[in-house]
Protein backbone atom coordinates (compact mmCIF):
# COMPACT_ATOMS: atom_id res chain seq x y z
CA UNK A 1 0.00 0.00 0.00
CA UNK A 2 2.70 2.43 1.02
CA UNK A 3 4.77 1.48 -1.98
CA UNK A 4 1.76 2.25 -4.19
CA UNK A 5 1.34 5.64 -2.60
CA UNK A 6 5.00 6.47 -3.05
CA UNK A 7 5.00 5.39 -6.68
CA UNK A 8 1.80 7.34 -7.32
CA UNK A 9 3.39 10.38 -5.76
CA UNK A 10 6.51 9.90 -7.86
CA UNK A 11 4.42 9.56 -10.99
CA UNK A 12 2.56 12.78 -10.15
CA UNK A 13 5.84 14.57 -9.62
CA UNK A 14 7.22 13.34 -12.94
CA UNK A 15 4.00 14.25 -14.76
CA UNK A 16 4.11 17.68 -13.19
CA UNK A 17 7.68 18.26 -14.31
CA UNK A 18 6.89 17.06 -17.81
CA UNK A 19 3.85 19.31 -18.15
CA UNK A 20 5.85 22.24 -16.82
CA UNK A 21 8.46 21.48 -19.45
CA UNK A 22 5.98 21.27 -22.29
CA UNK A 23 4.33 24.45 -21.04
CA UNK A 24 7.72 26.11 -21.16
CA UNK A 25 8.31 24.86 -24.70
CA UNK A 26 4.92 26.13 -25.79
CA UNK A 27 5.57 29.58 -24.36
CA UNK A 28 9.04 29.64 -25.88
CA UNK A 29 7.67 28.72 -29.28
CA UNK A 30 4.98 31.35 -28.99
CA UNK A 31 7.16 34.24 -27.93
CA UNK A 32 10.44 33.73 -29.69
CA UNK A 33 10.90 34.99 -33.18
CA UNK A 34 10.52 38.19 -35.11
CA UNK A 35 7.12 39.72 -34.47
CA UNK A 36 5.31 40.32 -37.72
CA UNK A 37 3.75 43.59 -36.71
CA UNK A 38 1.47 44.18 -39.63
CA UNK A 39 -0.04 40.74 -39.58
CA UNK A 40 -0.22 40.11 -35.86
CA UNK A 41 -1.19 43.53 -34.58
CA UNK A 42 -4.87 43.23 -35.64
CA UNK A 43 -4.94 39.83 -33.93
CA UNK A 44 -3.61 41.43 -30.76
CA UNK A 45 -6.23 44.16 -30.90
CA UNK A 46 -8.98 41.62 -31.36
CA UNK A 47 -7.77 39.57 -28.41
CA UNK A 48 -7.40 42.69 -26.26
CA UNK A 49 -11.03 43.39 -27.04
CA UNK A 50 -12.12 39.87 -26.14
CA UNK A 51 -10.06 39.58 -22.98
CA UNK A 52 -9.95 43.17 -21.78
CA UNK A 53 -12.95 45.12 -22.93
CA UNK A 54 -15.39 42.29 -22.42
CA UNK A 55 -14.16 41.75 -18.87
CA UNK A 56 -14.58 45.41 -17.98
CA UNK A 57 -18.14 45.13 -16.75
CA UNK A 58 -17.53 42.33 -14.29
CA UNK A 59 -14.29 43.89 -13.06
CA UNK A 60 -15.79 47.33 -12.51
CA UNK A 61 -18.88 46.01 -10.79
CA UNK A 62 -16.86 43.70 -8.57
CA UNK A 63 -14.44 46.49 -7.75
CA UNK A 64 -17.29 48.78 -6.81
CA UNK A 65 -18.97 46.25 -4.57
CA UNK A 66 -15.77 45.11 -2.89
CA UNK A 67 -14.68 48.70 -2.26
CA UNK A 68 -18.05 49.49 -0.76
CA UNK A 69 -18.03 46.39 1.44
CA UNK A 70 -14.55 47.13 2.76
CA UNK A 71 -15.62 50.69 3.41
CA UNK A 72 -18.65 49.51 5.33
CA UNK A 73 -16.96 46.77 7.32
CA UNK A 74 -13.98 48.97 8.01
CA UNK A 75 -16.16 51.81 9.22
CA UNK A 76 -18.14 49.55 11.56
CA UNK A 77 -14.94 48.39 13.26
CA UNK A 78 -12.98 51.64 13.19
CA UNK A 79 -15.78 53.75 14.61
CA UNK A 80 -15.43 51.87 17.93
CA UNK A 81 -11.88 53.16 18.22
CA UNK A 82 -12.85 56.67 17.04
CA UNK A 83 -10.44 56.02 14.21
CA UNK A 84 -12.88 56.31 11.33
CA UNK A 85 -10.73 58.93 9.66
CA UNK A 86 -8.33 56.13 8.83
CA UNK A 87 -11.01 54.49 6.69
CA UNK A 88 -9.45 55.83 3.50
CA UNK A 89 -6.12 54.35 4.40
CA UNK A 90 -7.72 50.99 5.14
CA UNK A 91 -9.62 50.85 1.87
CA UNK A 92 -6.75 52.09 -0.27
CA UNK A 93 -4.05 49.88 1.17
CA UNK A 94 -6.10 46.70 1.18
CA UNK A 95 -7.16 47.24 -2.41
CA UNK A 96 -3.79 48.38 -3.73
CA UNK A 97 -1.68 45.77 -2.07
CA UNK A 98 -3.88 42.70 -2.02
CA UNK A 99 -7.46 42.72 -3.20
CA UNK A 100 -6.94 44.62 -6.41
CA UNK A 101 -4.40 42.26 -8.00
CA UNK A 102 -5.71 39.06 -6.41
CA UNK A 103 -9.44 39.43 -6.97
CA UNK A 104 -8.89 40.72 -10.49
CA UNK A 105 -6.70 37.70 -11.20
CA UNK A 106 -9.29 35.30 -9.82
CA UNK A 107 -12.12 36.91 -11.77
CA UNK A 108 -9.99 37.01 -14.89
CA UNK A 109 -9.09 33.34 -14.49
CA UNK A 110 -12.74 32.45 -14.15
CA UNK A 111 -14.03 34.54 -17.01
CA UNK A 112 -11.29 35.04 -19.56
CA UNK A 113 -9.06 32.12 -18.61
CA UNK A 114 -11.80 29.54 -18.99
CA UNK A 115 -12.91 31.16 -22.26
CA UNK A 116 -9.34 30.96 -23.61
CA UNK A 117 -8.98 27.31 -22.66
CA UNK A 118 -12.33 26.38 -24.13
CA UNK A 119 -11.67 28.27 -27.35
CA UNK A 120 -8.26 26.76 -27.96
CA UNK A 121 -9.46 23.32 -26.90
CA UNK A 122 -12.30 23.58 -29.39
CA UNK A 123 -9.89 24.69 -32.10
CA UNK A 124 -7.81 21.63 -31.33
CA UNK A 125 -10.84 19.33 -31.33
CA UNK A 126 -12.12 20.61 -34.68
CA UNK A 127 -8.62 20.23 -36.09
CA UNK A 128 -8.23 23.93 -36.80
CA UNK A 129 -4.80 23.85 -35.19
CA UNK A 130 -3.77 20.88 -37.32
CA UNK A 131 -4.96 22.56 -40.48
CA UNK A 132 -2.99 25.66 -39.56
CA UNK A 133 0.09 23.49 -39.31
CA UNK A 134 -0.64 21.84 -42.63
CA UNK A 135 -0.97 25.27 -44.19
CA UNK A 136 2.55 26.02 -43.01
CA UNK A 137 1.33 28.57 -40.46
CA UNK A 138 2.73 28.19 -36.98
CA UNK A 139 -0.29 27.90 -34.65
CA UNK A 140 1.85 28.97 -31.70
CA UNK A 141 2.70 32.33 -33.26
CA UNK A 142 -0.73 32.89 -34.72
CA UNK A 143 -3.09 31.63 -32.08
CA UNK A 144 -1.21 31.44 -28.78
CA UNK A 145 1.06 34.45 -28.98
CA UNK A 146 -1.55 37.21 -29.55
CA UNK A 147 -3.71 35.79 -26.74
CA UNK A 148 -0.74 35.68 -24.40
CA UNK A 149 0.28 39.27 -24.97
CA UNK A 150 -3.30 40.49 -24.85
CA UNK A 151 -3.82 38.80 -21.49
CA UNK A 152 -0.57 40.11 -20.03
CA UNK A 153 -1.41 43.65 -21.16
CA UNK A 154 -5.09 43.57 -20.24
CA UNK A 155 -4.98 42.10 -16.76
CA UNK A 156 -2.82 44.69 -14.98
CA UNK A 157 -4.94 47.42 -16.56
CA UNK A 158 -8.04 45.67 -15.26
CA UNK A 159 -6.45 45.46 -11.81
CA UNK A 160 -5.77 49.20 -11.79
CA UNK A 161 -9.34 49.93 -12.86
CA UNK A 162 -10.63 47.55 -10.18
CA UNK A 163 -8.61 49.29 -7.49
CA UNK A 164 -9.58 52.78 -8.59
CA UNK A 165 -13.27 51.93 -8.74
CA UNK A 166 -12.98 50.15 -5.39
CA UNK A 167 -11.41 53.13 -3.68
CA UNK A 168 -14.09 55.36 -5.12
CA UNK A 169 -16.72 52.91 -3.88
CA UNK A 170 -15.14 52.97 -0.44
CA UNK A 171 -15.32 56.76 -0.47
CA UNK A 172 -18.98 56.56 -1.47
CA UNK A 173 -19.76 54.48 1.59
CA UNK A 174 -17.44 56.28 3.98
CA UNK A 175 -17.91 59.89 3.01
CA UNK A 176 -21.31 60.07 1.37
CA UNK A 177 -23.14 57.54 3.47
CA UNK A 178 -21.43 57.22 6.83
CA UNK A 179 -20.33 60.81 7.07
CA UNK A 180 -16.59 60.45 7.48
CA UNK A 181 -14.98 63.81 6.82
CA UNK A 182 -14.04 63.96 3.14
CA UNK A 183 -10.88 65.95 3.74
CA UNK A 184 -9.53 63.57 6.38
CA UNK A 185 -10.55 60.55 4.33
CA UNK A 186 -8.44 61.54 1.36
CA UNK A 187 -5.58 63.19 3.23
CA UNK A 188 -4.97 60.29 5.63
CA UNK A 189 -5.09 58.02 2.61
CA UNK A 190 -2.61 60.13 0.69
CA UNK A 191 -0.29 60.23 3.67
CA UNK A 192 -0.15 56.49 3.96
CA UNK A 193 -0.08 55.36 0.34
CA UNK A 194 3.27 55.58 -1.33
CA UNK A 195 3.67 55.39 -5.09
CA UNK A 196 6.68 53.14 -5.25
CA UNK A 197 5.88 50.94 -2.29
CA UNK A 198 2.18 50.28 -2.69
CA UNK A 199 1.01 51.11 -6.18
CA UNK A 200 4.06 49.83 -8.00
CA UNK A 201 4.22 46.65 -5.95
CA UNK A 202 0.55 46.02 -6.59
CA UNK A 203 1.17 46.51 -10.28
CA UNK A 204 4.09 44.07 -10.27
CA UNK A 205 1.90 41.56 -8.49
CA UNK A 206 -0.84 41.81 -11.07
CA UNK A 207 1.77 41.46 -13.83
CA UNK A 208 3.02 38.20 -12.29
CA UNK A 209 -0.54 36.98 -11.87
CA UNK A 210 -1.35 37.89 -15.46
CA UNK A 211 1.54 35.83 -16.82
CA UNK A 212 0.58 32.83 -14.66
CA UNK A 213 -3.14 32.88 -15.40
CA UNK A 214 -2.80 33.37 -19.14
CA UNK A 215 -0.01 30.82 -19.41
CA UNK A 216 -2.03 28.19 -17.54
CA UNK A 217 -5.14 28.91 -19.60
CA UNK A 218 -3.30 28.66 -22.93
CA UNK A 219 -1.36 25.56 -21.93
CA UNK A 220 -4.45 23.68 -20.76
CA UNK A 221 -6.26 24.50 -23.98
CA UNK A 222 -3.36 23.62 -26.23
CA UNK A 223 -2.68 20.27 -24.58
CA UNK A 224 -6.19 19.14 -23.80
CA UNK A 225 -7.67 15.90 -25.04
CA UNK A 226 -9.66 16.96 -28.10
CA UNK A 227 -13.05 15.60 -27.05
CA UNK A 228 -15.91 17.50 -25.45
CA UNK A 229 -15.16 15.81 -22.14
CA UNK A 230 -11.50 16.67 -22.48
CA UNK A 231 -12.28 20.33 -23.13
CA UNK A 232 -14.55 20.62 -20.11
CA UNK A 233 -11.90 18.97 -17.93
CA UNK A 234 -9.27 21.33 -19.26
CA UNK A 235 -11.47 24.37 -18.57
CA UNK A 236 -12.07 23.28 -14.99
CA UNK A 237 -8.37 22.60 -14.58
CA UNK A 238 -7.57 26.11 -15.77
CA UNK A 239 -9.85 27.81 -13.28
CA UNK A 240 -8.73 25.66 -10.35
CA UNK A 241 -5.01 25.69 -11.12
CA UNK A 242 -4.90 29.37 -12.01
CA UNK A 243 -6.73 30.35 -8.83
CA UNK A 244 -4.46 28.25 -6.63
CA UNK A 245 -1.33 29.54 -8.34
CA UNK A 246 -2.50 33.13 -7.94
CA UNK A 247 -3.17 32.70 -4.23
CA UNK A 248 0.11 30.89 -3.62
CA UNK A 249 2.10 33.40 -5.67
CA UNK A 250 0.36 36.19 -3.77
CA UNK A 251 1.72 34.85 -0.50
CA UNK A 252 5.24 34.58 -1.89
CA UNK A 253 5.16 38.05 -3.42
CA UNK A 254 3.64 39.61 -0.31
CA UNK A 255 6.32 38.04 1.84
CA UNK A 256 9.02 39.36 -0.47
CA UNK A 257 7.58 42.83 -0.98
CA UNK A 258 5.88 43.69 2.27
CA UNK A 259 6.93 41.10 4.79
CA UNK A 260 10.58 41.98 4.96
CA UNK A 261 9.93 45.58 6.02
Amino acid sequence: MIVNMISAFGRTAITFCRSLGSAGFMLWGALIGKPQIRKHFPLLIKQLHVLGVQSLLIIMLSGLFIGMVIGLQGYVVLVDFAAETSLGQLVALSLLRELGPVVTALLFAGRAGSALTAEIGLMKATEQLSSLEMMAVDPLRRVISPRFWAGVIAMPILAIIFTAVGIWGGSLVGVDWKGVDAGSFWSVMQNSVSWSYDILNGFIKSLCFAVSVVWIALFNGYHCIPTSEGISKATTKTVVNASLVVLGLDFVLTAVMFGAG
Binding site: V53, I157, W168, Q190, V193, W195
Partner: peptide
Protein backbone atom coordinates in the same frame (compact mmCIF):
# COMPACT_ATOMS: atom_id res chain seq x y z
CA UNK B 1 -13.17 49.78 -27.83
CA UNK B 2 -9.63 48.70 -27.04
CA UNK B 3 -8.50 52.31 -27.21
CA UNK B 4 -11.27 53.25 -24.81
CA UNK B 5 -10.23 50.43 -22.52
CA UNK B 6 -6.63 51.62 -22.44
CA UNK B 7 -7.80 55.18 -21.82
CA UNK B 8 -9.86 53.98 -18.89
CA UNK B 9 -6.81 52.23 -17.49
CA UNK B 10 -4.68 55.35 -17.80
CA UNK B 11 -7.41 57.42 -16.17
CA UNK B 12 -7.55 54.99 -13.26
CA UNK B 13 -3.77 55.16 -12.94
CA UNK B 14 -3.86 58.97 -12.88
CA UNK B 15 -6.62 58.88 -10.29
CA UNK B 16 -4.55 56.58 -8.13
CA UNK B 17 -1.51 58.73 -8.56
CA UNK B 18 -3.10 62.05 -7.75
CA UNK B 19 -5.87 61.38 -5.29
CA UNK B 20 -4.67 58.31 -3.53
CA UNK B 21 -0.93 58.31 -3.25
CA UNK B 22 1.40 60.70 -1.57
CA UNK B 23 2.49 62.75 -4.53
Amino acid sequence: WVGLFLLLGIAALVFLGLKVANV
